[in-house]
């Protein structure tokens, strides 16, 4: 019956225990728990993320990133947050319009340091005291080479299309090189990765930098964590340059207009915070519901949520 909860009591109890462990983990490391607004005047410009707007011209946040970075800029402290975030038009076995995110930032850390801390936390949450999990780190370039013998530096749309055809995938329209890369990684490479192993893919193509710094080797200092085919976390060496950030947002808006999407006002407060002397830091966001799916061995995200958004 529709009024009844979707998640089992066991799933709800497991979530409660998970939050306790997360809070203990960060308290131990002197990382401060913070709260930022769910309702905001600005939102993301990302061409692949659609915000939910209210009738009063405000947005439900799609991630607490900008507000947390304003706290970082002003108080210069390690912080974390567990919160509900919202994205329009996302619904599937691993996606819902309303879901729970854990996000944290470590000052003066590198993204490689942070990968290790992400592994430490996820192991602490997934493993019993006598168990452990293997960890693998593989660069974006290496993973395409290893599993598909593709050189991401030089591969063309035709090369990616051939890979899709070889895997019996028929796409309705042609994609850009970047879209092919994203699709092929998610749908062809990730299912081939070793099971029961925490796999970090790092150093993304610069077109996929999002809010990450770009290093001297022309890689975006970004990583993603995969476990048993599920994308669990996304982290950055956080961009500290306000000008560069603003021009990336403007580029997002150009892409949005090309795709017939509306342009989004750039968050002036976030840009001003970066401009105030933003500290070097690494940050990461982790999907709590997907982690629970792994812990409970269920196949649909709705099974870990009492009342999934319809």
């Amino acid at each position: 019956m529709s009024w009844q909860p979707r998640a089992s009591l066991h799933a709800i109890e497991t979530r409660a225990e998970l939050y306790e462990k997360i809070r203990a983990f960060f308290q131990n490391k002197n990382v401060l728990e913070v709260e930022t607004p769910i309702l905001n005047s600005y939102t993301v410009t990302d061409e692949n993320i659609e915000s939910i707007a209210t009738e009063h011209s405000q947005y439900l946040h799609t991630s607490p990133e900008y507000a947390m970075k304003r706290l970082l800029a002003f108080y210069q402290r390690d912080i974390y947050q567990v919160c509900k975030v919202f994205r329009a038009e996302e619904k599937g076995a691993y996606h819902l319009s309303e879901f729970t995110m854990l996000e944290w930032y470590k000052l003066s850390w590198s993204y490689k340091d942070l990968m290790q801390e992400v592994a430490e936390l996820v192991k602490a949450l997934l493993c019993k005291s006598d168990e452990s999990l293997d960890t693998q780190q593989i660069s974006y370039q290496q993973v395409f080479k290893k599993y598909l013998n593709i050189d991401v530096q030089t591969a063309s749309q035709a090369d990616y299309l051939q890979v899709c055809t070889d895997h019996s995938i028929k796409l309705s329209t042609a994609l850009t090189v970047q879209q092919y890369q994203e699709f092929v990684l998610d749908q062809i490479i990730v299912p081939k990765l070793q099971q029961n192993c925490l796999i970090f893919i790092y150093d993304y193509p610069i077109e996929q930098a999002a809010l990450a710094q770009i290093n001297s080797e022309a890689h975006a200092e970004r990583f993603e964590l995969y476990f048993n085919g599920i994308e669990l976390a996304n982290g950055f060496q956080e961009l500290t340059d306000a000008k560069e950030q603003k021009s990336r947002f403007e580029e997002d808006n150009r892409k949005r207009l090309q795709e017939n999407k509306n342009a989004i006002d750039i968050d002036k407060n976030f840009i001003a915070a970066l401009d105030s002397g933003f500290p070097e830091c690494a940050g990461v966001a982790l999907g709590i519901d997907r982690l629970l799916m792994i812990m409970l061995d269920v196949k649909h995200i709705e099974e870990v949520i009492p009342f999934p958004s319809s």
């Binding site: 692949n48 996302e90 028929k170 993603e224």
Partner: peptide, 28 residues
């Protein structure tokens, strides 16, 4: 519904041809 990382989202569907009954995969 699949959505790679921060990328473009896709719908991967199984469809049946109503004339022949044949089932094929398509990705939009």
């Amino acid at each position: 519904f699949v959505k790679p990382g921060k990328g473009q989202a896709f719908n991967r569907v199984k469809v049946r041809n109503l004339k022949t009954g044949r089932v094929v995969d398509r990705t939009f």
